[in-house]
Deep mutational scan, measured.
Amino acid sequence: KYSDMIVAAIQAEKNRAGSSRQSIQKYIKSHYKVGENADSQIKLSIKRLVTTGVLKQTKGVGASGSFRLA
């Protein structure tokens, strides 16, 4: 599940300011076997996790910027 992968990526990075979408994508692609549409799936999952309150956006708008666990 992409949401689990995103949470794992943010936990692994341990950046106080949060993790960027690009760094999350890079982590997921190197640690998991994902399909061609992974980028758009990650983007959608990040937006969903922010609206449900699992992630907090520290910089930027939408799916860009930095995110950390709430």
Rank of each mutant, 00 (worst) to 15 (best):
K29G: 03
R48P: 00
G53W: 04
I10H: 01
R21T: 15
V34Y: 03
Q25T: 15
Y2H: 02
I6K: 15
E36S: 12
Q11G: 06
N37Y: 07
L49Y: 03
V61C: 13
L69N: 04
L55E: 00
L55C: 02
A70C: 08
L55G: 00
Y2N: 01
M5T: 00
Q57D: 04
D4P: 06
Y27Q: 01
K47A: 11
A38G: 04
K43E: 15
Q22N: 08
S45E: 15
V50P: 01
L49A: 02
V50R: 01
F67H: 04
K26M: 09
A12V: 05
V34I: 05
Y32G: 02
N15E: 05
S23N: 07
K26T: 09
S64I: 09
K1D: 13
S66T: 13
Q25D: 06
L49E: 00
A63D: 11
G18Q: 02
S45W: 15
Q22K: 09
S30F: 07
V54L: 06
Q22E: 13
A70P: 04
K56R: 10
A63V: 10
F67D: 02
A17H: 14
K59T: 08
A12Y: 06
E13N: 12
D39L: 07
K33Q: 09
H31E: 03
K1H: 11
S45C: 15
E36I: 11
G35F: 04
R68F: 14
Y27D: 02
A63Q: 10
G18W: 07
I28M: 03
G62Q: 05
K29N: 06
G35M: 05
S19G: 03
R48C: 15
R68Y: 14
S64A: 09
Q57W: 15
R16F: 10
T58V: 13
Q57G: 04
S30R: 07
V61Y: 12
D4V: 10
G62P: 04
D4C: 15
M5Q: 02
K56H: 09
S19F: 02
K26P: 00
K56C: 14
A17D: 12
V34A: 05
S66L: 15
Q11I: 11
I6Y: 01
N15D: 07
T58W: 07
K29P: 01
K1A: 10
K1M: 10
G18E: 04
M5H: 02
T52I: 13
K59S: 11
A63H: 11
Y27V: 01
I42Q: 00
G60M: 06
K26H: 09
M5R: 02
Y32R: 01
K1P: 09
S3W: 06
S23D: 11
T58G: 07
T52L: 14
G60K: 08
